[in-house]
């Protein structure tokens, strides 16, 4: 590339600054997670002796049942909420992008309104309703409210995606004598799939991040998701700080995020920018 040395130096500096900004807090908690208990209070960044004791604690030790069950809950609930949102949003976005019908704007406006809705405002009535109908502390009891988080943004992002798809291909396929199903499978699916996938990724991040519903609508290992479990970790007795275990658990649940980001950064960026600002 035609960069001068000065520019190269500049870009190197900028890159380092951005990397430090983005990764430093993650590195900090990762460093803490490798400390032995007596080093937690020594005021240093790096552990003196690197130890896996905290990981043992959460993966095979005392905190195992709390952590692993919450991990299972989080993965299961987030995936299901994401899948439902993706299906519903795909149908809705297809209709909005491709069909002309009264109420399109209403649906988009509703999605917008729902996405700015303060979660805490609905958590109390939901808690009250759930305890009456028996959904309290169950998977569906979290999946349903998670839809209020994942569905609106999915509809927006997918609508934006679908509007850019060259739908003539669909007609062309039909003209070529393909059945509707073939046209759908051969032409539409490949066109729409990347958008749906991206949307699902972003929706998953949102569901994975939830805390308010998680601590309010669950109370046992039956449904408690990871962010809520992190706040409930415990040391050897109830008076001891679980700093090490929390750090280790935090690192474990951050790994999937980093992996997804590494693999799909292009799609995530496209999804967020397309769904967000257009025209």
């Amino acid at each position: 590339m035609g960069l001068t040395t000065k520019q190269k130096v500049w870009w190197a500096v900028i890159t380092v600054v951005v990397l430090v900004y983005a990764l430093f807090p993650v590195a900090a908690i990762a460093a803490t997670s490798f400390k032995i208990p007596s080093e937690l209070d020594n005021g240093r960044f790096l552990p003196g002796t690197w130890s896996l004791i905290n990981y043992e604690q959460i993966l095979v030790g005392d905190a195992q049942s709390l952590f692993l069950s919450s991990l299972r809950n989080s993965i299961g609930i987030s995936l299901i909420a994401t899948a439902i949102a993706a299906v519903l949003a795909t149908l809705a976005a297809y209709a909005i992008a491709r069909l002309d019908f009264p109420g399109k704007r209403l649906i988009l406006t509703t999605a917008l309104a729902v996405s700015i809705f303060p979660v805490i405002s609905i958590v109390t009535p939901l808690f009250n309703l759930w305890r009456t109908i028996g959904l309290y502390d169950t998977w569906p009891g979290l999946i349903i409210p998670y839809l209020s988080l994942t569905l609106p943004i999915s509809i927006w992002i997918l609508t934006a995606f679908f509007r850019q798809i060259p739908w003539e291909l669909e007609q062309a396929a039909q003209v070529d004598g393909a059945t509707t199903w073939q046209a759908f499978r051969k032409a539409i699916v490949p066109l729409a799939a990347p958008g749906v996938f991206t949307t699902a990724l972003i929706a998953f991040f949102i569901a994975w991040n939830d805390f308010v519903y998680g601590i309010s609508l669950t109370s046992t290992e039956a449904a408690r998701p990871v962010p809520a479990a992190l706040a409930f970790f415990t040391g050897a007795s109830q008076f001891e700080e679980p700093t090490g275990s929390i750090s280790a658990a935090a690192v474990v649940v951050t790994i999937p995020v980093v992996v997804l980001v590494l693999l799909f950064q292009r799609q995530i960026v496209a999804g967020l920018t397309q769904g967000a600002v257009k025209g």
């Binding site: 808690f127 305890r131 009456t132 028996g134 309290y136 502390d137 109370s219 046992t220």
Partner: peptide
């Protein structure tokens, strides 16, 4: 946690 569950007649 307990009060919420018990209020839900658990």
């Amino acid at each position: 946690q307990l009060a919420r569950r018990l209020a839900a007649r658990d």
